[in-house]
Amino acid sequence: MLDKVLGGLVWSGGMDAVEELRAAGERGDAEAVAGLLADDVVFHSPLTDRVTFEGRDEVVALHRDIFAVLEDVRTSAPLEHGDSYAFSFRARVRGAELEAMNLVRLDEQGLIAELTVFVRPLPSLATLFANLPPRVSARRRGPVVGGLVACLAVPLAFAFRTADRLAPRFL
């Protein structure tokens, strides 16, 4: 990919995949994400380090689930360092505003080889945890397992949202 010069800034060809990822995220378009991913892409969850999602098909399916629970995704301009890029985004999940950072590593062909996401604040992360894993579990393991995951996750989200409202009064 050729480098582009925009307003005196050098924009590497690899940035194209990141820009397209940002645009797909803002549209909630998981199918557009598919064309940006390497076959052996790895997605590192913001919810646990015990689960990674591997392969284009699984990461695209995960993005369908993500886009089903996130609303009003707005992304920032990316930063670049070598084959790695970072950009933030804001979105809502069940009315809770969240802020996240995406780290994206590209392979030699300019395709996304690795995605890592970090989310804050904790109550919003907990709300995401109460909504996304049950959906993913139901898709991968069936509705009974999805329901079980929801039974475990929903009380945590409630507890963290409640603590977030009360704890600052004591700080």
Rank of each mutant, 00 (worst) to 15 (best):
L115D: 03
F87A: 03
D39I: 04
A32Q: 09
H44P: 01
A126E: 07
R27T: 02
E26C: 05
L148H: 04
E97V: 14
L2K: 14
F160D: 02
D65L: 02
V10I: 15
D164Q: 00
R105A: 11
R50I: 08
L98P: 05
G35Q: 04
E26Y: 13
R140S: 02
R165S: 12
V41S: 08
S84L: 03
F129N: 13
D40G: 10
H63I: 00
D16K: 06
G8A: 06
L79Q: 14
D3L: 11
E26R: 08
P121Y: 10
G13Q: 11
G55F: 13
A38Y: 01
H81C: 07
G147W: 05
L106T: 12
R90L: 08
V117W: 05
G82A: 08
R92A: 06
F170D: 00
L125M: 12
E19W: 10
A157S: 15
D40Q: 10
L152E: 05
L98T: 10
L111Y: 05
L21H: 13
R105I: 01
V41K: 04
V41W: 00
H44S: 12
E71D: 14
D107E: 12
A91Q: 04
L166S: 07
L103C: 05
E54V: 13
F67T: 08
V144L: 15
V93S: 05
L36A: 06
A113V: 00
G82C: 05
R92G: 06
V145D: 04
V5S: 04
S88N: 00
S88G: 12
G146N: 01
G25Y: 03
P78M: 01
R120F: 05
